[in-house]
Simulated scan of single mutants.
Amino acid sequence: MLTNIGVPGLVLFVILALIIFGPNKLPQIGKAAGESLKEFKNSTRDLTQDVTAETSEVKSMMKEEK
């Protein structure tokens, strides 16, 4: 869905954002969005590491039983 926006759609989106939020508020919104994405990425990485560790532990337990 978002892949069909193109450059004109992106320009229109930026212009609408400037009209709605104003030029002073956009950097704050961008910073908050960036921090949110960074936190999501870190949480996803931690979750992936936990699952990998659990999987390795189960595999090692299975090998010990054999």
Rank of each mutant, 00 (worst) to 15 (best):
T55H: 11
L37Y: 08
G34W: 02
V7H: 12
E35H: 03
F13P: 00
T55P: 01
F40M: 07
N42M: 13
T3A: 10
A32L: 14
S36A: 14
F13Q: 12
E65P: 00
E54S: 11
G30N: 03
D46L: 11
M61S: 15
G34S: 05
S60V: 11
R45P: 00
P8A: 04
L12E: 03
E57V: 03
K38H: 06
M62G: 04
E39R: 15
D50G: 04
E35L: 05
V51Y: 07
K31G: 02
E65I: 14
K66Y: 08
I5Q: 09
L37H: 07
S56W: 08
F13I: 10
K59Y: 03
G6H: 02
F21I: 06
K31A: 14
E35D: 12
Q28R: 05
G30K: 03
E64M: 10
G9C: 04
A17N: 01
L16R: 10
L16D: 10
K41P: 04
K31F: 07
A53I: 14
I5W: 04
L37Q: 06
A33G: 14
M1L: 15
M1E: 12
I20Y: 01
K31H: 04
A33P: 00
K63E: 06
V58Y: 12
E54N: 06
K31Y: 11
T3R: 10
M61D: 07
L10Y: 09
L47S: 13
E35F: 06
P27F: 01
E39C: 06
E57Q: 13
S43K: 15
A32S: 04
Q28F: 04
L18P: 01
E64L: 11
P27I: 05
N42W: 09
M1K: 08
G30T: 00
T3C: 00
K63G: 01
N24Y: 05
S36K: 10
K25Q: 06
G22R: 00
G34Q: 02
E54Y: 07
P8W: 04
L12N: 06
I29Q: 02
E57A: 15
M1I: 05
K66N: 12
E39V: 05
T44D: 08
N42H: 10
L18N: 11
F40K: 13
L10V: 02
N4V: 10
I15P: 00
K41A: 11
S56T: 08
A53K: 15
